[in-house]
């Protein structure tokens, strides 16, 4: 007997719409609202043993309290499976459902939700198993018919297949696996399908890029301390830390003190992503100390930090890029720097 706990919002509980959105979390025995359909689908294999209802505004505005209530409910009910929603296109409800899935995962309880692919809840907990739905409750029966078998599979700890096979949205995890035909034949088959308006499915969905908000401008460069950071792998000649030419995982810092420009007797470029001979002959091409000293003399910048920071950007894993970036930023910040010249190659 599968013990199912169901999370729904105030609207689907039949309590009310926006006017009831501040409803505090409350548990009910057995199924409520869409949970009744779920209960019927379970037939004699299980039951919806409890339903947690919470107002969407409450969940989003008093998130800590809501999380505590969700956790307490799961610890009390000990369900084998949690079903959240489906939330369709309702944004706050989607966020709540994703958070419920996260809490379940932390307690090692299987959980499934359903949402429209543009529901902002998808961004809350990317690892959640989310079945794509239409934008309204008209899609409820179909959605539950996909959500429940997936949930049963998760609850029974049977390995779950790829997103496209099992009917959930990609969770940001890619795993190796073989396909029916070799790559070259799949590529021409995909092109033929596209040319003849037949359905096809890309094997690599392309993500949109994350926008990085720029820092506010420096009010007065003439009194600012500037540091130089480069992914161009300019290092003291001899490469004392053995910075790699590609796939580096670390960063390094070296001194610029007492120098007016970088001489090729003292510095070189070990970046392997471009023909670096010119950069080794004149490292100022990558790390423009000569120009920065001019600006300093002319009073256009206040001060130049005596230390510069470098790594090899070439083929660096994103996970290392993020860590190196954070570490360099912390080092620069603690040195009292106002602005950074980031020189890429």
């Amino acid at each position: 007997m599968l013990r199912v706990g169901h999370y729904i919002n105030q609207f689907f509980a039949g309590i009310g719409g926006e006017q009831s959105a501040n409803l505090t979390p409350q548990g009910r025995d057995g199924p409520v609202g869409p949970g009744r359909a779920l209960h019927l689908l379970l037939k004699d294999t299980g039951a919806v043993v409890s339903t947690l209802i919470c107002g969407d505004s409450f969940f989003n505005e008093r998130a800590a309290e809501a999380r505590t209530a969700v956790r307490a409910w799961m610890e009390e009910i000990r369900p084998d499976l949690v079903i959240a929603g489906p939330a369709f296109a309702a944004g706050r409800y989607g966020v709540a459902c994703a958070e419920v899935c996260r809490q379940a995962a932390e307690l090692d309880i299987a959980a499934v939700t359903g949402m429209h692919p543009e529901n902002p809840g998808l961004l809350v907990h990317k690892q959640a198993y989310v079945v794509p739905t239409g934008d309204s409750a008209a899609d409820l029966a179909r959605a539950l018919n996909v959500m429940l078998p997936l949930g049963q599979k998760l609850a029974s700890r049977v390995p779950v297949g790829p997103a496209a096979v099992e009917g959930y949205l990609p969770r940001g995890v890619r795993r190796p696996g073989a396909r029916g035909e070799i790559g070259a034949e799949r590529a021409i088959a995909m092109l033929v399908a596209k040319l003849t308006a037949q359905p096809f499915q890309t094997e690599i969905p392309v993500d949109k890029y994350e926008a990085v908000p720029p820092a506010p401008p420096i009010a007065d460069l003439r009194h600012a301390t500037i540091a130089v950071v480069t992914t161009g792998a300019v290092v003291p000649r001899g490469n004392p830390d053995h910075l790699k030419r590609c796939s580096e995982t670390r960063w390094a810092q070296y001194t610029l003190a007492g120098r007016d420009r970088l001489s090729s007797d003292e510095f070189e470029c070990v970046h392997g992503g471009f023909f670096n001979l010119m950069a080794s002959e004149n490292p100022n091409l990558v790390l423009p100390l000569d120009v920065l000293r001019d600006l300093q003399r002319e009073g256009k910048i206040g001060n130049l930090l005596d230390t510069y920071f470098t790594t090899t950007g070439n083929d660096q894993r994103l996970i290392d890029c993020k860590r190196n970036g954070a570490e360099i930023a912390a080092a620069v910040q603690s040195a009292g720097v106002d602005g950074v010249l980031l020189v890429a190659t």
Binding site: R171, R174, P176, G183, R186, E203, I204
Partner: peptide, 9 residues
């Protein structure tokens, strides 16, 4: 694409 290996989401 000599082989059948790929990745799945």
């Amino acid at each position: 694409g000599l082989g059948r290996q790929s990745y799945y989401d």
